[in-house]
């Protein structure tokens, strides 16, 4: 008798999460939309009542109008592609060098002791400090921006790869020893899969830094790109253009981060987030 009653009690508990999951999804969509509309409304009110002068705070209407202008001129798409290209090159270079360096440091305690202070020093040095050197060394064009992106993302990537390698539970290496894994197999079949979830997180974080840096990097030494767009808008006192460039930068950054977030759903990576 008791067992039967107990089972009845369990049933509604199992159904409930299904209902809440639906409402959670609905909330996930509707709540941010409400917040954004509130913000737009406040912006609109500020403009209507001329709290700030029109040249210092462009109205939503003016921003929309300039967006149409820029899209017709094709400059916005051009700038976005230029920025994305620089990010891609700089970031791939940083990942291609930073992850192997992190792997090597993670496996060698002696090297770790020698190099970690240096890496930390450069991690805390703002990449923007390199701007004068970037221009002197690489002149004008894509190269200085790519160099700055590289400097922004290499150090955090190398350091977080290193610490995730160093934190792999030793039991995995003991198991690898039991099953006679060779040294290359240990890297490819234990170390890499074990740190993959943390690598994805590190990529997301350092990509965030890189995306922030690209705007500043393009303000100097570039003739196009989203950062250059803002710089030029400022020079022409066209803050309406600057505002929609800002919107594009934020939205594009978010969209790419969502792409990285999709990686965490891969079955080989998901285990690291579900434990």
């Amino acid at each position: 008798m008791r067992a039967a009653i107990h089972e009845k009690k369990v049933l509604p508990v199992q159904i409930k999460p299904l209902q809440t999951r639906k409402t959670v999804k609905y909330h996930n969509f509707i709540l941010p939309v409400i917040v954004v509309f509130c913000l737009l409304f406040i912006w609109y009110i500020l403009c209507v009542f001329h709290v700030f002068p029109a040249y210092a705070l462009p109205s939503p209407g003016a921003v929309l109008k300039s967006l149409r202008e820029e899209l017709v001129a094709g400059r916005l798409v051009n700038d976005a592609i230029a920025s994305l290209w620089r990010i891609a090159v700089g970031f791939v270079l940083a990942a291609g060098l930073g992850i192997p360096v992190g792997l090597w440091l993670g496996h060698h305690g002696f090297a770790r002791k020698a190099f970690v202070p240096l890496l930390n020093f450069f991690r805390f040095l703002s990449p923007l400090a390199w701007i004068p050197f970037a221009i002197l060394w690489f002149h004008i064009g894509d190269k200085p921006a790519i160099f700055l992106i590289f400097m922004a993302s290499f150090f955090p990537l190398a350091l977080s790869t290193m610490s995730s390698v160093a934190n792999i539970p030793s039991i995995y290496f003991r198991v690898a020893h039991d099953y006679n894994y060779k040294s290359i197999e240990i890297i490819t079949r234990v170390t890499l899969p074990a740190i993959l979830p943390q690598i994805v997180t590190a990529l997301r974080l350092s990509y965030g830094i890189a995306w922030v840096v690209i705007v500043a990097a393009e303000m100097v030494g570039c003739q196009d790109g989203l950062g250059y767009g803002i710089w030029e808008a400022r020079n022409g006192l066209r803050l309406d253009i600057a505002v929609f460039y800002m919107i594009v930068i934020g939205a594009l950054g978010m969209a790419i981060d969502r792409l990285f977030a999709q990686l965490t759903k891969l079955p080989n990576i998901r285990w690291g987030y579900e434990r």
């Binding site: 995995y172 198991v175 039991d178 285990w271 434990r275």
Partner: peptide, 15 residues
């Protein structure tokens, strides 16, 4: 052939 069975977490979580 010697094999060890550990207290816990001996399985590779990515497999």
């Amino acid at each position: 052939i010697i094999r060890t069975i550990y207290q816990h977490d001996g399985l590779f979580p990515w497999l």
